[in-house]
Write a protein that binds this DNA or RNA. Structure first.
Lengths: 340, 340
DNA sequence: TCCTGATACTAAATCGATTTAGTAAACAAG
DNA sequence: CTTGTTTACTAAATCGATTTAGTATCAGGA
């Protein structure tokens, strides 16, 4: 029992392959009712299922896009992916998902393979370390959208968080409530990780703008596994911060572990705010004040932009960089208390 | 500037397409060094990138699998997906991800479309309500593996949690510590959702096996948004349970909201155990005792099984149903205390 | 010298659709 | 009665690879 092809249907319906093809593509213009019925019947009887690969070869379009992410396990990634998938679903597109683990080699391999598979476009959370490949796609005006990070000096569309504003929201909220000694916790700052750099930069600017001191020892930038130790040292010193700003969910987790191990009371011993609205923010005790990234909007915007480019990939060269608004979710981990 | 094809390379290297094809597939048997060099050079100069779609058409294999899930936003799903992707990465396969939102119509559409796109196999978290489509794939011995749920009376490979054991682990742990009035919280029991049913069934069996009473009013099965209200009613009644068993992460979230709103103290007012090792289990106060599903193992096993079937899809018909072991993660939300 | 077999290739068929150019029949207009 | 137009199709080329069945050349053995 081998596969039924269009030729089999054509034979069964006593018409040519071309006519079957027209029928399937709903080009009924010059087709008799009689013929339509016969084809429909043949398809039904034989259980014919079209082969999309053959169609893709001829039409040079696979109705498939690739999404290359660092790690699907990150909440932000998952939410962005979900939004992308929803947009694709509306258009009968499919999504191939690839994890790079922030490894440029894997990223390169995936870009190559996905392009070989003729995906119609790519949405990438770029490692930032494959400049020539990114550039090549831009030059060929291959539909491409970056999410979360972008790459300097490359005219490519991107959907990003307004990181400066996110940091400013955090600092302003803490300062509004009355905190003055504010620390920030981040993984190491590396040149290709723009959001991290922008958040720390935005933090410094916002602190200064409020007329407060930027204290270098309050800027904890360490590899994730070292954060707890770094915080322990900082809090043993003479004058620890009153509030901490964790720049993403992973650092927040470390801060919370630190808080737990040292039996600190939030917000009395330490106030806490972070970027990424973690799912347990509203059930933690106390509830956690966060700066939410509009993850679904990011995914949706990225996908919509990609489809714009897919539908007319030649026109308009100007890259569009969207900076989406972070949202402050006021909860209990930042609040005023008497013994400040 | 149009696409470079194999024919262009052949012309440039002054050989036939066949030879270029042999070269690309590393069939060097009868190929002179001279020719190899010329082809390599032509590929380099023209920047030739193979078209995988054409290859797929001829070879009847796309090196792509489909994974159909309820919702990529669930932790379990994300982790399973990640493990699947890792296995695929080793084999240079790609993964198309689709969300059904537990809607059988969407599931049907995805199965159809992915098969039309000639994926080499499918891993499905089945809605359980497309029997004829599942059956059709089984009959054609199309490579298929179910994860999380399975469908009764259908000989299909599946990778599942041992739900009876998970429930037993929960009940035994609670009973060991000294709890006697144990409740269970679950979304509504529906025939197609096997894990839910099995967990509740396993719960009842385990309670009986410990010589305790199964109290019907302690079995809270309600739609997610109604759970808080149901628990409130239960706890206003004369004799509320001393411990609750949440059968998955979503119900756990509702229970935690309930606990928070009513200012209950865990484990003094109520002990808590749940299936799904949520990421905040170890940072919540108190830390949460859970029954972890081996999500990565599930994904890995499912993918490995699928590849076995892809590689020799005719042999061995016996479906293999893997029941993976849940793991008790003892933490603080279940512990002995004086005022029991 | 002729035959055999290895080496190093190539021409053409194939995969399963889409698409273009074309044809036959029916009918209307001049 | 011829010509032109519309209708309802079909034959054949095409997409870009893989693969099978050959072919031409040359070396070595009988």
């Amino acid at each position: 029992m081998q596969k039924i092809t269009m030729a089999d249907v054509a034979k069964a319906a006593n018409v040519s392959k071309s006519t079957v093809s027209q029928y399937l593509n709903k080009r009924y213009e010059y087709m008799s009712e009689e013929t339509k019925k016969r084809i429909a019947q043949a398809i039904e009887e034989l259980g014919y299922q079209p082969n999309f690969v053959a169609r893709s070869l001829k039409q040079k379009s696979t109705s498939t896009i690739g999404v290359i992410v660092f790690n699907i396990l990150h909440m932000l990634t998952t939410q962005v992916l979900r939004a992308i998938e929803d947009v694709c679903q509306e258009r009968d597109f499919h999504v191939i998902v690839c994890n790079t683990d922030d490894d440029p080699e894997k990223e390169k391999k995936y870009i190559e393979m996905l392009r070989a598979k003729q995906v119609d476009g790519l949405i990438i959370f770029p490692t930032g370390r494959n400049y020539e490949w990114y550039e090549k796609m831009v030059n060929e005006s291959f539909p491409l959208v970056f999410v979360d990070r972008t790459v300097p000096d490359l005219p490519v569309d991107a959907v990003l968080l307004d990181n400066y504003k996110a940091a400013k929201l955090a600092v302003d909220h803490l300062a509004d409530v009355g905190y003055e000694r504010i620390g920030i916790v981040t993984p190491p700052l590396v040149s290709y990780n723009i959001p991290r750099t922008e958040r720390v930069e935005g933090f410094k600017l916002a602190v200064k703008a409020r007329g407060l001191q930027v204290m270098d020892e309050y800027i904890v930038n360490l590899e994730i596994p070292c954060i707890k130790e770094g915080l322990t040292k900082l809090f043993r010193s003479g004058c620890p911060p009153q509030a901490l700003f964790a720049i993403n969910d992973l650092t927040l987790m470390e801060v919370l572990h630190f808080v737990q191990e040292n039996q600190l009371r939030i917000p009395y011993d330490i106030a806490l705010i972070s970027i990424d609205d973690v799912p347990f923010a509203s059930i933690y005790t106390p509830t956690l004040t966060t700066i939410a990234q509009p993850a679904f909007e990011m995914g949706r915007k990225a996908a919509e932009r990609l489809f714009q480019k897919i539908e007319r990939s030649h026109e308009e060269k100007e890259p569009q960089i969207l900076r989406l608004e972070p949202v402050l979710k006021k909860r209990q981990s930042v609040s005023w208390h008497s013994n400040l």
